[in-house]
Design a protein around this nucleic acid. Structure first.
Lengths: 156, 156
DNA sequence: ATTGAAAGGAATTCGCG
DNA sequence: CGCGAATTCCTTTCAAT
C-alpha cells in the first residue's frame, strides 16, 4: 500500500477512537457503502498500518494504582549487554514501556504495580538483579496528565 | 461491579489482545455460551473496567518516526501554574503522554513527530511558549525496546 | 446465572456499472 | 473503485431452568 487518501486517513482516525464500530456504521460515517469500506480496512491491516485492536482498561480498577518512571544506566554498553537488557525487559510484565535514549541515562521505563510495596519488590527481586544494570533512579508518577493512544494522522 | 472472577479476568486478557474478536469466538474460548459472555462484557464496560476499544497503528507508517522523551521543569509551582500547564498539554497533539513526577523534574513527556526538524518546531513554537515553563531537557528515543498496552491482570 | 432457540442485523461475496 | 443484492454468520433477546 503506497499512499493514504483522505478516506483511508479518516478510517484510521475513526478506528483509533473506536475499534468496535461496525463496518456498517463506519461506512456511513465515510459516506461509502459497506463493501469498499471493508476492503479498505482489510488493506490497512494487511499493509501494516493497523497492527491490532485492543481493549483499553482502567489500571486502577485492575489493581495497578502505582506508576513509576525509572531511569536506568547500564554498567557497560557492549552490544551483548544491551541485547541482554532488552531480552530481560521483555519478560518483566510490570514494564509497560521501555525506551533506549540519548543523554545521561540509557533507558527510561514505565512500570506499573499494585502499590509502592510491590514496586519495591519488583526493583529488588527483578530489576536490580539484572547483571547488566548499573544504577536506577525511580520517580513516582503523581498523576497522569495525559495518556493518549491515538496518533495524529498527518495530511500526507 | 465488585470483584472480578476468573472468567472476567480472562475476558479482560483476551480483549486486551484482540478487541475485535466476535462474541461467539470469545465465548468459546471461555467455555461459555454467547449470551452470558455478552452480558459480562457489557458489565465490564459499564462499570469502568473497559474504557474503550482502539486500533493500534504503526507510528512509522503514519509518518511519525521521531519519538522524544522530554523532561520539563516549571518556573513556579502554584496550583494555577500546574493547572495551566495541564490544560496546555491537553491541546498539544504531539504529546502522547505526560506524567507529573516526584524528583528533580516536574513532568516527563513523550512526544511524537515526523522527524527531528518537526520536533524542533514543536519545541520552539509550542512547548517553549508556555509561560509556566521553566526548562526542558530533550532525549531522543533511539529505539522503543518495549511498548505494551496490555495490563497484567492479577489474581485478585 | 447459564442454556438453547429464534429473530433481527451485520459481514462478506459477487456480478455489475 | 464503488454499488446493490444475496447469503451466511453473528448478535441479541427471551423463555426455561
Amino acid at each position: 500500500m503506497n499512499e493514504l487518501d483522505k478516506t483511508d486517513r479518516k478510517i484510521l482516525e475513526i478506528l483509533q477512537k473506536n475499534a468496535r464500530i461496525t463496518n456498517k456504521e463506519l461506512s456511513s460515517q465515510l459516506g461509502l457503502s459497506p463493501p469498499p469500506t471493508l476492503e479498505r480496512v482489510k488493506k490497512l491491516e494487511s499493509s501494516g498500518y493497523i497492527t491490532g485492536y485492543i481493549a483499553v482498561l482502567d489500571p486502577k480498577k485492575v489493581d495497578l494504582g502505582a506508576v513509576m518512571m525509572v531511569s536506568v544506566t547500564l554498567h557497560q554498553h557492549s552490544e551483548e549487554a544491551i541485547e541482554a537488557f532488552h531480552r530481560a525487559i521483555e519478560n518483566l510484565t510490570e514494564v509497560m514501556e521501555c525506551y533506549h535514549l540519548t543523554g545521561d541515562d540509557d533507558f527510561i521505563l514505565k512500570v506499573v504495580c499494585k502499590d509502592i510495596q510491590q514496586y519495591e519488590r519488583f526493583v529488588r527481586e527483578k530489576l536490580a538483579r539484572l547483571n547488566t544494570l548499573g544504577k536506577i533512579k525511580s520517580s513516582v508518577v503523581l498523576s497522569t496528565v495525559k495518556m493518549v493512544r491515538e496518533y495524529p494522522i498527518s495530511e500526507r
